[in-house]
Amino acid sequence: MIYTLCIILFLLGLYGVLVKRNIIKIIISLAMMNNAVNLFLILLAYRSNGVAPILDPGMDPSILLETSVDPLPQALVLTSVVIGLGVTALMVALAIRLYHAYGTFDITKIRKLKG
């Protein structure tokens, strides 16, 4: 099943977040997880040889319902991409600040908080 590939991509991203030490790689892994979910949503809506979901005046709604692709997940993915952009931008900004504060991107060396 093609959906399994999305889940594998998601888990690969999760693996990257949990295992990698470099902050930039962690950010990339999170973006990968986000894109895996977006891909999953898009694949939910896909229908081979589907038509655009526009109801013309002379068209039968039930036929359109059977042949058209689902437009809603595409709108959701657009929103999700925008949110992902915001999260990534904030993370990169924090990473720059962290680099200037600690002089490293290695999260094992960024340890002032304990307990």
Binding site: I23, M91, I110
Partner: peptide, 12 residues
């Protein structure tokens, strides 16, 4: 610096 670190941890 420790605030940035806490925020990054929280954010991930």
């Amino acid at each position: 610096s420790y605030e940035l670190e806490a925020s990054f941890k929280y954010m991930i």
